[in-house]
Design a protein around this nucleic acid. Structure first.
Lengths: 112, 112
DNA sequence: TCAATATACCTCAGAATCTTATGTATGTAA
DNA sequence: TTACATACATAAGATTCTGAGGTATATTGA
């Protein structure tokens, strides 16, 4: 997933759900490019990680899909289901707690 | 590793190295209790994760050990090697970058 | 023209990490 | 005497990711 970073393991679902909460409708390749742009190339989301993650989220009922052909190429658009809209709220709170705890454990922030 | 949190995957080495940078000398059980205390019980470091991680860091030359018997019980103390002292600096910078990027990806912080 | 790169999807073997369970052993408190 | 705390350890299985491979179309530069 990362250039040099084991740390992102486990964060991919949350990242996908949040991007879809922001942009409403994205396809896989677009997600990889968006992640690359946001992190200025520091996090390269691999296809071997992304596609299985998208399929899993869809199987869990958090994502819905619609397929289109654009410029003679297939695009599979993903968007949040109603359940996905709820779940992204939980995931983001977990992420906030995670970052808070990690900063405490690594002394990266004073305790306020 | 966590109560309910997949997110900590990959952070354990950094957490261990940083705790040892702070406390100079700790044994395994002590590390589990320290992590529990710092996170107020939110992160429970499992033995099945901790001990293999300690052994790996030792095998990589980042940790040194000395065994003592205290109250008739064995304690294996770990401390940073010279190489470990250097590596903890890198790991902490990686962790800072990771948190920064994750916050950007999750909109958990304005961009400054 | 044709080779490389970008776009766009996908799967799978293997590596790495963690959870859960199990095992050993001592000390203490109910 | 039973449960819990202290203290170490391993190992099977689950999960997630990397790296490699596969298919296909469009564009760009040499």
């Amino acid at each position: 997933m990362a250039v040099n970073n084991e740390l992102f393991k486990g964060t991919l679902q949350t990242i996908i759900l949040n991007l879809l909460a922001e942009h409403h409708r994205m396809y896989g390749y677009e997600i990889t490019q968006k992640v690359k742009a946001i992190t200025q190339g520091e996090l390269l989301l691999k296809e071997g990680a992304l596609y299985p993650a998208l399929h899993k989220l869809e199987a869990e009922g958090l994502l819905e899909t619609s397929t289109e052909v654009v410029d003679n190429r297939l695009r599979k658009y993903y968007s949040l289901s109603q359940e996905g809209e709820k779940e992204v709220v939980n995931k983001l709170q977990e992420a906030r707690d995670f970052i808070q705890n990690l900063q405490l454990l690594l002394n990266l922030k004073p305790s306020f």
